[in-house]
Design a protein around this nucleic acid. Sequence first.
DNA 1: TTGTAAGCGTTATCAC
DNA 2: GTGATAACGCTTACAA
Lengths: 341, 341
Amino acid sequence: MNKSDKQPTINDVARVAGVSKKTVSRVINRSPLLKLDTREKVEAVIAQLGYVPNPQARALALRRNFLLGLLHDNPNAQTVLNFQEGVLDAIRDTEFALVVRPVDRHSPGMLDDIRNFLELQRLYGVLILPPISEDDELAALCRDMGCGYVRMGSAALDEAEHLVQSNDRQMVEGVVDYLVEQGHRRIGLIEGPVGFRSAFERREGFLSAMRRHGLDVPQDAIVPGNYRFNSGVEGADRLLSVEPRVTAVFASNDEMAAGAYHAARARGVEVPRDFSIVGFDDSPIAAHIWPPMTTVGWPIRQMGKAAALKLVAPDMADARPSCFPARLVTRSSVAPPAKEI
Amino acid sequence: MNKSDKQPTINDVARVAGVSKKTVSRVINRSPLLKLDTREKVEAVIAQLGYVPNPQARALALRRNFLLGLLHDNPNAQTVLNFQEGVLDAIRDTEFALVVRPVDRHSPGMLDDIRNFLELQRLYGVLILPPISEDDELAALCRDMGCGYVRMGSAALDEAEHLVQSNDRQMVEGVVDYLVEQGHRRIGLIEGPVGFRSAFERREGFLSAMRRHGLDVPQDAIVPGNYRFNSGVEGADRLLSVEPRVTAVFASNDEMAAGAYHAARARGVEVPRDFSIVGFDDSPIAAHIWPPMTTVGWPIRQMGKAAALKLVAPDMADARPSCFPARLVTRSSVAPPAKEI
DNA sequence: TTGTAAGCGTTATCAC
DNA sequence: GTGATAACGCTTACAA
């Protein structure tokens, strides 16, 4: 239908529609100062020809690529993938694509690496997952480089347009409420890594709810962790070795909670009869471990979608909300504590 | 140092080096017909100016982007992420970036979607993960569109330059050997989904090893599955309900193997004392479930790296191998069978 | 409201 | 071997 079978270009559209390429360009870019019938005429030709603007050419002219970047330092795999799916929900059927960029937050060159990356790829914007989303220098870098960004975090790290937030603190309060409701009084906490905002928020939620219930939190009912499985094993082991024993534990994520299962099993402590466990994330392991784990699930995919929309279509309704409520997923790892003898 | 603080362009290099831009271009593209000292002179200027070619401009001129695409339909999350890491290992410090594209193999429009995607983004090449890597139409599409591709698969799906392969069949034979060595004679199989090459290979490996050992595989020792947790629960449940019971099972992936743990536990069957379980993938759950699972681990990250190198640097040594041997990761889910009474 | 001309930073063509 | 010059497909002045 067209000369050769190459993709039609803006020139083809202009020629067929009998207008200049600039006018076609205006149609593509939704310029407001166009006569309605010109626009319609051009749109008809675009549809007829099946014309799609070439992103490479636009990228060159605009000095900005139609690419969204996903910056992360390896939170858990399912989180990253769910977030990716959400981003894809947002950019499906658009010219945008998603490029992924794992980074190493322990490398001193991280910021420079990212600068080079942004400079080279000229991304439209980046989405930053925790924990590096908490790095204000990184956000400043994006701002300086004129690269859009949205951070995902568990606190109000930034302005609404740059943030999708989960309400970790409040959710953990809910976890404690639930455990107390089940009759628990001595509840332990396995913390997340020092320096992680999410870990901080979860601990604060835990402490404030315990306080609200008038419950004591002895020093040794709080043990450190680093979000890794092994730290959950060790943490729970310490918790289970002091008397009087806690009857329940909140682990700051599922992986550590799974570790707590191990520690319990190794000591012959039965979950949930002797020891109730609650995790955080609702990752696959929570559903697959035995007994199935009660945990906090957050809408990562929606957050991914909203984050991407904040960049590519800031006025869409779905781009608005910045806070995404998590919910308690009750399964079978919590039971009322055994009667004291 | 330069006029304004923009990135230097090829023109700046040409001017400072006192050559034409085409010559600089030749240096960048390693054209062989250049005088050595011209090349060295230009290279010195490039280094001095910190010049980096602009990928957007190259993309426009070459009608091909410096992007690698990762096409997958959601195998497990850890697999995808490990593969991504491998790809990143390959393209770190190059101008390439990785764009991800989850697809839905059940959608009738999948192929058209992918065609549009390739047409629009003009990818340098794509990496295709199983199960869609097994789709020959998809490979043909890439070929037609002049888009490089490498498939990851569990069989010789394609020529070496388009393939990174794992030796599933052989590995599963090894699993059976191991179980037999431990004393098992009645061994069950939970299959993967019909139509998946990996599922086929794993079954064939199982059957051929059993045959080699002269062991009988009754009809009801093979149960269907779909790589999902629940099918593992159901499959193992069926296996455990027929007499004489199998003493061990090979589940075609870890997720189903985890399901088998559940089924056993629900019936009061103890793993591994009464029932040995072996999975496939060495996904995180294998290490985190109790007792830790014996499984087959394959070098996904290296495969990702090799796959990417086949596209971007086909002559590098690391790009050569097409077959990547997996290995048995022995943990605690296998024990000799209880003595018959 | 629309069109013209000049880029954006590279590579391809084809002389020299 | 090397260098003008014209693409590549779009956008941004600036004119009309």
